[in-house]
Amino acid sequence: MTYVKPLPEEDKWSGPFYEAARDGKLVAQRCAATGKFFFPPSPVSPFTRDKEWSWEPLAGTGKIASYVVMHQKYFPGFADEVPYPVIEVELDEGVRLISNIVELGDRELAVGLPVEVVFSKVSDEFTLPLFKPAN
């Protein structure tokens, strides 16, 4: 089955994020001087403006900081799923990801809900981090 949703536009900065996701790992850049993580992938640390940063693993756990339910059909690939929720996840390390919720079951989508990362392979090239309610 062909994957019809938008695929990431991998560039020289985001490449390692998606490579790690293919291996089932969640990573982000960490500023060497401050120890703080930053995202989306960038050429320099916004805290120091220098290139002294490294890709480091994230625990993959956090909480829902906010969420919306998309009703408008913006992407043809999502047209069959409207209305669908989108969540803003604040990870334990302080960085945020916009993502989707899976395995919600009969739990209610809510701000503050603890979540943990799962990975969804969408093509040979791309695997997307998604989130499910934390155990």
Partner: peptide, 29 residues
């Protein structure tokens, strides 16, 4: 104002309206 390329497009998140909706949900909570 939505549906184009963007870092969050793979997760179906797009448009200034959605960004403001996300902010407002936080404000509600």
């Amino acid at each position: 104002y939505g549906g184009g390329a963007g870092f969050w497009a793979p997760w179906g998140f797009t448009s200034p309206g959605a960004s403001h909706a996300m902010m407002f949900r936080r404000h509600m909570a």
